[in-house]
């Protein structure tokens, strides 16, 4: 710190309006949320207009587009379905991401009440609220996501590093080597258009 304590005198002070325009992140406890509210039925209408073309009428996803609902209790399955309802730990993330980055191709076009309503509808689509649910800045903090406790901080240094450290085997490391899987059998690699002159 001391080397830069004086500063370079570069840049200018950010104005409150500028900070308000860009600093829109929402914290897990709801800090940053604007005033507003939205109910499930309003959310269904907005969702149908703005979201359903990709995410489906019931947030179940169209084609390869992300599924926002479903997948409850599938996280330990062979093929888990990770959605807002089954996987996302915080409701703040849904509000923040919809508000800043959706709809895809027309981001930052939603009013706060629209976002509250869409988020309420996504919760309803995940069977997490009843159809009379109203999401607002006030009701926000009381809502806990099903998988809120499903995450833990990177533990690789304890669970992996200690196992895979030190001098490795160099000779006679195994008795036999058999092929167990081949990419050519799956055959999903794009064809190479080679320009090589052979």
């Amino acid at each position: 710190t001391p080397a830069f304590a004086e500063g370079f005198g570069l840049g200018r002070t950010a104005l409150p309006e500028e900070i308000a325009a860009w600093d829109i992140d929402i914290r897990p406890d709801g800090t940053g949320l604007p005033e507003g509210s939205g109910d499930v039925w309003t959310g269904e209408e907005v969702f149908a207009d703005q979201c359903a073309a990709c995410h489906g009428d019931f947030a179940e996803g169209v084609d390869n587009w992300p599924k926002l609902a479903g997948g409850a209790d599938t996280l330990a399955d062979e093929d888990p379905l990770k959605t807002v309802g089954s996987y996302w730990p915080y409701l703040s993330t849904t509000w923040d991401y919809v508000n800043r980055s959706m709809p895809f191709g027309n981001a930052q076009s939603l009013e706060p009440d629209d976002v509250y309503a869409i988020v309420a509808y996504i919760l309803y689509s995940n069977d997490l609220v009843d159809d009379d649910f109203v999401l607002s800045k006030e009701t926000f903090a009381a809502f806990e996501m099903p998988n809120a406790g499903g995450f833990f901080v990177d533990d690789r240094m304890e669970t992996e590093f200690t196992k895979w450290v030190g001098e490795p085997c160099m000779e006679n490391c195994k008795d036999s080597v058999e092929i167990t899987m081949r990419a050519a059998v799956l055959d999903v690699t794009p064809e190479e258009e080679t320009t090589e002159d052979t």
């Binding site: 996280l75 888990p80 990770k82 807002v84 993330t93 499903g150 995450f151 833990f152 901080v153 990177d154």
Partner: peptide
Amino acid sequence: TSKYTDVMEDGTARKW
């Protein structure tokens, strides 16, 4: 949260 978290066999996930 949704992305760049790593689901383990038991369904819990590493973050960060």
